[in-house]
Amino acid sequence: MRSVLPILTVVMAILALWYGAAVMLNRQWTLDQAARAGQDLTIAQIVADTMAQDRPKLPAPHQVGAELWNTTGAMVLEGRAFTRRSLIWHGWVTLSATLVGFGIGTGLGILLAVGIVHNRAMDMSVMPWAIASQTIPILAIAPMIIVVLNSVGISGLLPKAIISAYLSFFPVVVGMVAGLRSPDRMQLDLLRTYSASPSQAFWKLRWPSSMPYLFTSLKVGMAASLVGAIVGELPTGAVRGLGARLLAGSYYGQTVQIWSALFAAAILAATLVGIIGLIQRITLKRMGMAR
């Protein structure tokens, strides 16, 4: 709790910098408009105008906040929460693809990790590739997956979910292999003296001791899934989803819309990672592993 004050200070400093930058970046347009109309503006008028432009270079924080409210809370109050103009609807489209992909990716990742830990041939052949794949910009194949699946008649949620799954797959594999190998030799030997079967050793020792690693890689995988879903929405031509809002905003120069979509994505990511963190804290506490 003692770090609340420093964090608040930093956040306030960022907001102050943001307002300053908004005035600096938007000033030129205001001055041009005034010169065209033949007016002289006072400093206060210039500042007021830079905060309230329609298509500012950098929207002020309160403009982004207002846009976020208008496209979420206000639409709920009007009962139009799931219309095309509502960020809740776009966010839901992205979120559902993210969650489906995350589920598939982590499920397969854990299965592969179990295989790798129990089978030496698999370990030696797959593991180097799994590690190498982390250095590759996998996201580059996103447009291709979307278009190819579209051409064979699969569109909508599934292609995005596949990209999300692919992105969350490898962090989970690498993390879980490390986690399932984290018990000491000594502990494994102890189980052998109890003549425990491999499956008992797995469920009673390897699986529980891999939990901290699992949650760490789930957090990484969740963030990656969301990025995957957002990028997966770009090549389909800006139809639905947060990525589509970003792309549409950049086509039409709607900076306020871009920033609000960006913040919606950020809030979504923070919430998802926060939920995993919460589950992690509860689980590890009940297992007696909390630090």
């Binding site: 957002i230 970003l246 950049s250 990672v273």
Partner: peptide, 26 residues
């Protein structure tokens, strides 16, 4: 500053920063 910036930095590092691409391209 360290106490304030570390949590904020950790938070931002987990966000989909790639979304700033359209803004920066503009």
């Amino acid at each position: 500053l360290k106490q304030g910036l570390l949590p904020v930095g950790n938070f931002i590092a987990a966000l989909p920063i790639i979304g700033t691409a359209p803004i920066l391209v503009m």
